[in-house]
């Protein structure tokens, strides 16, 4: 639910006040849901259930380990069960992702690649990654187009 995220956000803000980490307090994701705008920082995302998987991608060389929040967990927290997400990147690349894509063992909002946070130069800070290797149905143009990197905004369209 959004309240969970808000609570995390409060906790994160409190944390930021004490430690001056530039990254910790910086909003990495802006979520718009039912007219309400919420921002999440890296700590808030990392506080959510962690999912990790290995897969190759068509944009990288070799197998990569991605760590992040399952899209399904993220949507559960938002309380979104249907509709679409409009995901937008730093360079304003935007794509609509159906909420139905948020399934168990499905896509994640990755914040780490091979155990390290991702800079913008490395497609970070957030990258929606599907387990392409685990499920061949994810090896399609449509899914590739939804695999948005340098993600910084998500809008829920119901």
């Amino acid at each position: 639910m959004i309240s969970t995220i808000s609570r995390m956000l409060l906790a994160t803000t409190a944390l930021t006040l004490t430690c001056q980490s530039a990254l910790a307090g910086e909003a990495v994701l802006t979520v718009t849901h039912a007219g309400e705008v919420t921002t999440l920082d890296m700590d808030a995302l990392q506080a959510m259930d962690v999912v990790e998987f290995e897969t190759s991608t068509i944009w990288t060389e070799g197998t990569q380990t991605f760590t992040g929040v399952s899209l399904s967990t993220f949507l559960d927290d938002l309380g979104v069960t249907e509709g679409n997400l409009k995901a937008t990147a730093i360079n304003d690349y935007a794509v609509e992702i159906p909420v139905s894509d948020g399934v168990e063992n499905g896509p994640i909002i990755a914040y780490m690649r091979n155990g390290e946070l991702m800079s913008v130069r490395d497609k970070g800070p957030l990258w929606i990654v599907y387990p392409y290797d685990a499920d061949p149905t994810y090896q399609t143009e449509v899914v590739y187009s939804r695999s948005i990197w340098q993600l910084d905004r998500i809008e829920v369209i119901e």
Binding site: I58, W59, T60, E61, I90, N91, S119, V120, R121, D122, K123, W149, Q150
Partner: peptide, 13 residues
């Protein structure tokens, strides 16, 4: 940074 990332993709994909 965005351009840099794109070039890395060109080099690795």
């Amino acid at each position: 940074d965005v351009m840099y990332s794109r070039v890395q993709t060109l080099k690795a994909a």
